[in-house]
Design a protein around this nucleic acid. Structure first.
Lengths: 237, 237
DNA sequence: CTAGATTACGAACGCCGTTCGCGTCAAGTA
DNA sequence: TACTTGACGCGAACGGCGTTCGTAATCTAG
């Protein structure tokens, strides 16, 4: 990518071509195509035409590679400049961007949950969120807690939404044995004994209404509404 | 555990002693002692004095074993009977119970995030949550969405809070190279360039105030406050 | 007491992350 | 220009994982 290809035609594998950038680029390709579980050292090295051992000169271990990929993905979401009057839409819009970036790279949400990202792009995001929230009139304390809350919720939803994707890879049926996932859930709930589960069986429709996007929007709306109400919340005790 | 030990003294390994219950019991022991990553087929079999292959007569694969463990852990949380007047405290209390049960078994939260639990104990929990929320006056639709939201948030926080535990196992220092995790985070934030990260560097204290418990309480308070406000929310579109 | 099904389990397969040791190239020094 | 040196490339190997297979031991029915 950064290399101008130069005058070499296509000689031999031409040694000395590895770099952190090329490794991350190869990792992102595999990530988008096959999910995070497929990003193994051997697979990344294979895509670069070499063996797994070669990567260890540029990356400490698999964890560091995943952290680099995570930060690269986070770098794709753009942070709006804080506008005090529109802080509610802005923070929701930002979370949607983060959510979509993670869904674009199936499996990366798992990495985010496992690492508590602290790369430069993650910091840039936190910085932007804090700017939006404090511009909206939230106290520093609430803004700090809210960044955690929103990030954690967004990541958790993105993770869950990409689970079926990962499963479809190694499973047999790419979507479901019959009908959508929602239909399956509906059938499962409807088949439960009403005596034991009166609430669930009487709420099958409501429990399976709305796709993942609508449910994520619900959570965002609720959290932001809560933020609006708890402006002078303090640590208890 | 269920076996009364019987009259056998201690003969030979005495075949035919495996069962799903004993496998789950052994798994829970390892889970509590070493975390979910240590619950391998070989480790569980080893604790029962046999080889990994023996487990496959009782359990389809590792995923099913983890699902069984998850449901056993979920079975430890008790569900209060719905009292319409106290729905806010009740739902928070329930989430705290779920949170603590997961923290007691480090790593199980990861299993919960990866599986979308549907075992009998998980259903019992959903049933109880729905009862509490609808008793509180929430519509069926909002109650259904809220169960998802609360469960996902609680699990995500439990997962993150047990990460350091898992890390401490294979790492070198059981707590931190020096000072607590909070102190480390504080030092990291304080060391950032203020020009690039003006918000973060000016909010170091606020960002590192409060332990995990206080932050979880904040999230719960906010979500429940949001639930109070959005009683007549409908699916958009 | 025998026949058939179920269960126990050692061995092996293919995958993983990681390390080791040896070639081999690129740049610095004389 | 010739030589040294240190970093990089990479095949091979180690230990551990989930899972399968073939076989032996055991329980259950008839």
């Amino acid at each position: 990518m950064a290399s101008p290809l130069g005058p070499w035609p296509a000689k031999e594998p031409a040694r000395r071509r590895l770099s952190v950038d090329s490794i991350v680029a190869a990792g992102l390709e595999i990530l988008a195509a096959e999910g995070a579980d497929a990003v193994t050292m051997r697979a990344v090295a294979g895509k670069l035409g070499t063996g797994a051992a070669s990567l260890y000169a540029h990356v400490r271990d698999k964890g560091e590679l995943h952290a680099l990929l995570l930060d690269a993905v986070i770098g794709e979401v753009d942070v709006p400049e804080a506008d005090p009057a529109r802080w509610r839409e802005q923070i929701k819009q930002f979370c949607w961007g983060q959510y979509r970036a993670m869904v674009r790279h199936p499996g990366i949400a798992a990495v985010s949950l496992a690492h508590i990202p602290t790369g430069p792009n993650a910091l840039r995001c936190s910085e932007g969120m804090l700017a939006i929230l404090t511009a909206g009139g939230l106290s520093k304390l609430v803004a700090g807690l809210a960044v955690d809350l929103l990030t954690q919720y967004t990541t958790a939803v993105a993770y869950e939404d990409t689970l079926w994707w990962v499963r479809a890879e190694d499973g047999n049926d790419p979507f479901a044995s019959e009908g959508s996932v929602v239909a399956q859930a509906k059938a499962y709930f409807a088949g439960l004994p009403p005596a034991e589960y009166p609430m669930i069986t009487s709420m099958v429709e409501e429990l399976t209404t709305g796709d993942g996007d609508a449910r994520f929007q619900f959570g965002l709306d609720m959290i932001v509404a809560g933020l609006d109400n708890l402006r002078d919340w303090r640590l208890p005790g």
